[in-house]
């Protein structure tokens, strides 16, 4: 088995554990490269099917290319697709910095969606190498009844045995890509021929390395216009992946506060 095979086998195992143990499960689809890989892995795990809903928590501020992509593949991949809207900015914590407030809409939208559908498991495509706080995550990460995450008192996780039973009213986030790196995502996308939004590719010397809301996501300087070029760029870059995501950088603890209250 090569490196990508190993990563894939581990993620498939985690997805199948989630499906076996959680009866109200959904995949969170942000339309970005990572959640596309999660969807792809689900189709691998379940032999071409995605046997639970795929949910987009929509801020209505994504790039038009992202919506076009969503509508096309929700149909083409025969997904049980759910779209839920985020509440307005006024509903968020006013003490957060500006971009973090904007991102917090998604937290609230997610919280409402969980309550509405009664999900007890949400699959999300976060990775440890993206961001220092995400590095502290578990594969199966319990959330309290109000959706919050207790960073300082997480259950141990070892020997491939995950936390799959919970007190009533709580849910779990499942992170099948936790052990992948950014370049792994691109190599796998290339190997499998996974479709993606072309905003990731360079146009006029700029490309998006990470996709979020239009108003709080910035492109990076790059000439990488093919998968190979992106992979090569990542092998040498020392710039952080989420450097273009404004909410991470406004204050030292902004991202930690976002995550503790339920952000992905």
């Amino acid at each position: 088995m090569n490196h990508l095979d190993e990563l894939e086998a581990e993620s498939v195992y985690i997805l199948r554990e989630a499906f076996a143990k959680l009866d109200k499960l959904a995949i969170l689809w942000s339309l970005g490269k990572d959640s596309n890989v999660v969807l792809w892995l689900a189709r691998k795990a379940f032999f071409g099917h995605v046997p639970f809903p795929v949910m987009h928590v929509d801020t209505e501020k994504k790039f038009p290319e992202m919506y076009a992509f969503r509508d096309r593949y929700a149909k083409e991949w025969n997904l049980n697709f759910i779209r839920e809207l985020c509440p307005p900015l006024e509903a968020t914590d006013p003490t957060l910095p500006k971009a973090a407030r904007s991102a917090a809409r998604k937290t609230l939208g997610l919280r409402d969606a969980v309550a509405k559908h009664g999900f007890n498991g949400l699959i999300a495509g976060i990775r440890r190498d993206e961001e220092a706080i995400r590095a502290k995550e578990r594969y199966f990460s319990p959330r309290t009844a109000d959706n919050s995450w207790d960073l300082k008192d997480q259950p141990p996780e070892f020997w491939g045995q995950y936390m799959t039973s919970f007190p009533p009213g709580t849910h779990v986030r499942v992170h099948p890509l936790l052990h992948w790196t950014e370049v792994d995502i691109w190599r796998y996308t290339k190997r499998e021929g996974i479709p993606l939004i072309d905003l990731y590719f360079s146009r006029n010397g700029k490309r998006y390395r990470s996709l979020g809301d239009m108003d709080i996501t910035n492109p990076i300087a790059s000439d990488a216009s093919t998968l190979d070029a992106i992979i090569e760029e990542l092998e040498t870059t020392k710039v952080a992946e989420r450097s273009g995501r404004a909410m991470d950088h406004e204050a030292e603890d902004a991202f930690e506060r976002l995550r503790a209250s339920g952000y992905l």
Partner: peptide
């Protein structure tokens, strides 16, 4: 010490993964 809590307490709390 990537996060606030660690700096405040002066000890590493959790398994952080660094590449």
């Amino acid at each position: 010490d990537a996060i606030q809590a660690e700096r405040d307490q002066g000890i590493t709390i959790d398994t952080t993964q660094i590449f």
